Amino acid sequence: MKREIYCDSCKEETPHVLINPSKHLFQCEVCGSVMEVLPEKRVELRAIISRDDVSERGKIEVPRSEVLTKGEEVVVEVGEGYRVGEITSLELKNGKRVDVASAEDIETVWLRDVGEVKVRISLHKGPVTTPYEIFTSGEVEFTVGEILPVEGRKYKITRIKLINGGLLKKEGRSAKAKEIRRIYAQFIR
């Protein structure tokens, strides 16, 4: 095992190789000095991950000193496996909600499931607008100008409303499904 570690002899981070796993001894590949590097303790944090109006309890395991930030994506262990979630809020042990905190100060991590997301679409055909929903991977991209086949009909994406409040109208602009609040599409013949 090789990793970058600050070397007291070289006075900078250098590549070190693990030479004795049981004693956590690493040897600097630049100067040859040997040092003990103890593994950092990890903490298990309670996680609440939501998909639409359904929330599920899970847990996240991270190094104690790791700093978590709103908007960051992490893997959450839930009952039947794992989910990818985007941090929406961090609740401290004193009950206060913050956007950035060290893992050792966090009580609960609140997340939004971005592994599979619901994409809401407004389908326009003349004066009639029909709501439509699809479930897809959060990584799937949608582009203004793209043709969507829906129930045997074709619709052209005219606008994409983003979760952060932005609006994409220019043809060729795109966003990932996990970033989208709603897609507007016009029926084409």
Rank of each mutant, 00 (worst) to 15 (best):
V98C: 14
S50I: 13
R51T: 04
D113V: 04
L92G: 04
E61G: 07
E104F: 14
G79E: 02
R120H: 06
G81W: 08
D52C: 06
R57D: 02
D99Y: 06
V76E: 01
P63F: 15
K59H: 08
V62C: 00
V74K: 03
K96F: 13
V117H: 07
D105Q: 09
V78M: 12
T108Y: 15
E73A: 11
E61F: 14
V54H: 08
P63I: 05
E56G: 03
G81V: 02
V117L: 13
R46E: 11
N94A: 01
P63H: 05
G95K: 06
V78K: 15
R97A: 02
D52R: 10
S55L: 12
E107N: 09
S102V: 12
R97Q: 08
V62G: 01
E44A: 12
R46D: 12
D52Y: 15
E80P: 05
S102P: 04
V119I: 08
R57T: 14
R46L: 10
S122F: 12
D52E: 07
R46Y: 14
D105A: 09
G71I: 07
R120V: 09
A103T: 03
E44L: 14
V109A: 02
V98Q: 08
S102E: 08
I121E: 13
L90V: 14
E66D: 04
Y82Q: 13
D99G: 10
Y82E: 05
E104K: 02
E44V: 09
V119R: 11
K59Q: 14
V84I: 12
W110T: 04
R112E: 14
R51F: 15
G81E: 00
I121T: 14
S50Q: 10
E86G: 04
E86V: 07
G95E: 01
R83F: 14
I49R: 03
D53R: 08
